[in-house]
Write a protein that binds this DNA or RNA. Sequence first.
DNA 1: GGGCTCGTAGTCAAGTTTGACTACAGAGCT
DNA 2: AGCTCTGTAGTCAAACTTGACTACGAGCCC
Lengths: 213, 213
Amino acid sequence: MSAIRLLVLGAVRQHGRAHGYQIRNDLEYWGAHEWSNAKPGSIYHALKQMAKQGLLHAYETAPSTAGGPPRTEYEITERGTEEFLALLRAGLASPDAGPDSLAGALGFMVELERAEVLELLAERVAALRRWRDAVTEYYTPAEGPERLGHIGEIMNLWVHSADTGAEWTRGLVRRVEEGAYTFAGEGEPFVGVLPEGEENPYATGVRHPGDAR
Amino acid sequence: MSAIRLLVLGAVRQHGRAHGYQIRNDLEYWGAHEWSNAKPGSIYHALKQMAKQGLLHAYETAPSTAGGPPRTEYEITERGTEEFLALLRAGLASPDAGPDSLAGALGFMVELERAEVLELLAERVAALRRWRDAVTEYYTPAEGPERLGHIGEIMNLWVHSADTGAEWTRGLVRRVEEGAYTFAGEGEPFVGVLPEGEENPYATGVRHPGDAR
DNA sequence: GGGCTCGTAGTCAAGTTTGACTACAGAGCT
DNA sequence: AGCTCTGTAGTCAAACTTGACTACGAGCCC
């Protein structure tokens, strides 16, 4: 399923009502095609599928102003909002959801309350530790790890990514604890479509104290 | 395409001739279902598809000893071997191939020569640096990074994974440079199906000097 | 000796993803 | 006028993935 449903639901939600091409543009603006499978085909498919499943409501519209085929506009339903929140929470808390879901969830995390985000991230760290332990145990049977040979590098890779993933998560936890960003119920929300002004001292791209390397 | 073709081609190659269920078992033994999409359906599909494309040659066999439907056995062709090597090299050298392709490629890396593996890993590090630079530049336009708000965390995530990915790769380079494992043309090869004995001082599961955390 | 589970081997439909393609309007050039 | 280029909006077939399902033999258990 990947991250596309989360992305599309979130984009529709922010717009209130939107047609496929707008979603497509938003996702491209967010750079989502770089770190997820947000390609046109997938987006239109997700819209149709989720409309069929009652997560979105579809409105057929007249052939529109600027040329092209007739458009369909979508609005998120109540069930869609529930699904959106579920995917959002899963993306933050569960490493199994994959890095693209995490990235997408980061983009929408401010729609939750600060305290909940911190809980979810704590759960993420815990899940990573559990997984790390499972990997090392599974691949270190009675005979000892020596017999694995170069195959052991695969395990090494996964352990390394669990460790660095947890490290990154703790960095984010620190920033959020220290008051970074504006979460739900904390004043005017950050709309992900260029906010005009609003200096945020925690914006990244510059090195945060405590970050890795 | 993911890693499944690499895994299936490599497994068939190591067996010389194998039917679907053997491949399936090998991949499960390697734990591949944990870190890739190596599920039965995908495996059988990949076998058929690659047979159709001339990467594998299919032999229909009698209904076999132990119950069940008639089996099909596969052998790798010359074009299949080429494809296997191409996927293997891409998995090692190109981060775009994804972590599952990297993991799969690690399992087969000893089928290449040591010098080439080192070259490929060097290219991987270079590609990660290029990507890192592209991300930071793209997301740090004239207005400065402040206006990104929490969206900047997405960039932060990708930069972090590029950095830690490069760090891990350099660790592997070090081990391979120091003589770990037995590569092509260096004596009896390591067969990935339980080798019986053969202590390898570089087997992992224990911490390597120079590893992260 | 009937039923149960386990291991062997694979199929199938439904859903997803991909990349190439269609179709139209308006702008700009010659 | 005629032509191409760009932007808008979306479709389509082919491939891939998933999870549930089929089918059959052998061992075992009471």
